[in-house]
Amino acid sequence: MQAFNTFTGIVCPLDRANVDTDAIIPKQFLKSIKRTGFGPNLFDEWRYLDHGEPGQDCSQRPLNPDFALNDPRYQGAQILLARENFGCGSSREHAPWALADYGFRVIIAPSFADIFYNNCFKNGLLPIVLDAETVDALFGKAGGREALEITVDLAAQTLTLADGTVIPFDVDPFRKQCLLEGLDDIGLTLRHTDDIKAYEARRRREAPWLFQER
């Protein structure tokens, strides 16, 4: 996983509550055997005017001009601003895969669904919970003529707006460390490589039949 460093990015406001994982990536795309390539189908039903199916060339499809992701101001956005209970629904990891594949690195909302929240960290995305008032204020700024830019500093746990406003946020210290170092669950386990090797060496002596290579 890529290490999470300080960056400045454009905010895309998605003004809906209870956005579920099926809206993030509709179920017809789950038959894929890949975990990448979901970006063009992120929010498929809202983003395009036609019905999406796997294998289409999305650049040829009619865009919904009223959907935020298609707004010229928000092209290249890396920060998604959302409402309550973002990511509810299924436990599959396709939703964070799609958001990350599109290019999002941070999601800001007043609350997240539990499993989705944890799945974000596993996939290098930073979900930030802010109180509803602050989120409201950000929606106001993000909807202006010029796109809102925010500098995200995970180490300092701050969001800094162009006008100098600094907004602190909370994050679990363990999860923070993992993101800063680019460690996923596998990366973490691999920190204990010596323990695993020592265990194997012992078991090879005690139970050699478990290590017959064929």
Binding site: I33, R35, D184, I196, L210
Partner: peptide, 30 residues
């Protein structure tokens, strides 16, 4: 706990994204 696994059985439905994850991270099976 970190639990050691002696035998890992694999079939076609739940493994493709796992293998792709390995590939993306440049990892090999242990």
């Amino acid at each position: 706990a970190l639990l050691y696994i002696d035998r890992h059985l694999v079939h076609e439905v739940t493994s493709p994204q796992a293998f792709e994850g390995l590939r993306l991270a440049g990892r090999r099976p242990w």
